[in-house]
Amino acid sequence: MRRETLHAWLMLLPALVLLAGFTHIPAVETVVNSLFSTPRGMRPSHFVGLGNYRNLIADPTFWQAMRNNLLYAAITIPLSMGIALAMALLVQGRIGGRGFLRMAFFTPTVLPLIAVANIWIFFYTPGFGLLNQIGALLGLPNMNFLGQGATALYAVAAVSVWKEAGFFMIFYLAALQTIPPSLIEAARLEGASRWHVFRRVTLPLIMPTTLFISVNAVINAFRLVDQVFVMTQGGPDNASTLLFYYIYQVGFQFWDTAYAATLTVVMLTILAAIAIGQFFVLDRKVHYR
C-alpha cells in the first residue's frame, strides 16, 4: 500500500471509528434485530423474518402512538413555525424594547426541556395551577389538562410550540435581515400593500430558511419528546404516547428489544421519506441566492 494511502486512512480513522461505531453499525444492527425475535432467558434469538412487522401492524398501541404523533406534528410544526415568523417580523422592525423582546422570545430555547416541562406541570396542575386560577377568575370549571385523555396531548404539544417557536424565530430573523430594505421600498413604490409585499417578496426570499426550519421541525416532532417523560409518561391510557416514547417503553421498560428495533426502523423510514419529500417538492419552489 502506498504511503500516502496509508496516511489518508490513518487520518480518517478516528472519524470513521466514531461514525461506524455509533451510527452506521447500530443502524444496520437495528434493521437486523428487527428480523429476529427478542432473546429471552431460555430461548435464544431466532430469525422470524417479517414476523415483528406483522405484530406491529396488529398492535393497537403502535397505531395509537402513530396517530398521536401525526396529530402532534400537525399541531406543533405549523404553529411553531407560524409563531416564529410572526415574532421575527415583529422584532425585526423598529419598535420600542426590541432587544428585550428578542431576548424574551428566545429564552424558552435556552432553558432545558426537562426543567421547562416541570414548570409547565405547575401551570397545568388541577386546582391551584396557573391556568386553572386564571380560568377560575373567568368563571371556567376546574380542568385537569394532563390527566384526561381529551387534553393531555394538546397540553404536551403546547409546551413544544412554546419551546420551539423562539428557536425558529432566530433563523427567520436572520433571514429577514438579509433582505435589502430597498427591495421592500421598490415594492411599496409600485403600490404593493403590506400583505402583498410579504407574500410576493418577503416570503419567497425566506423560503430556503423555511425549508430548513420545516425539516428540523419534522424531525423534532418525532424526536424531541422529553416533556412526555416528565409530564404524562404517555398517559392517560396512551392518550399522549408518541412514537419515540413508545419505542423507549418497549425497549427499556418491557425489554422487548427486537420489537423496539422494528418500531425504530419504521420511524426512521417515515422520517427519511418526509425529509426527502420536503427537499424534492420544496426545492423546486425555493429560490437560493
Binding site: S182, E185, E190, G191, A192, H196, P204, L205, M207
Partner: peptide
C-alpha cells in the same frame, strides 16, 4: 425610482421584475 443596488427581486425573472408593478396594480 431606480435604486442604487437596483433592488431587483432575486426570485423573479426579468419579465417578472419588470411587470411586478403592473401585476400589483
Amino acid at each position: 425610482m431606480v435604486f442604487q443596488n437596483y433592488a431587483l427581486f432575486p426570485h423573479l425573472d426579468v419579465a417578472g421584475n419588470i411587470t411586478f408593478g403592473l401585476n400589483v396594480r
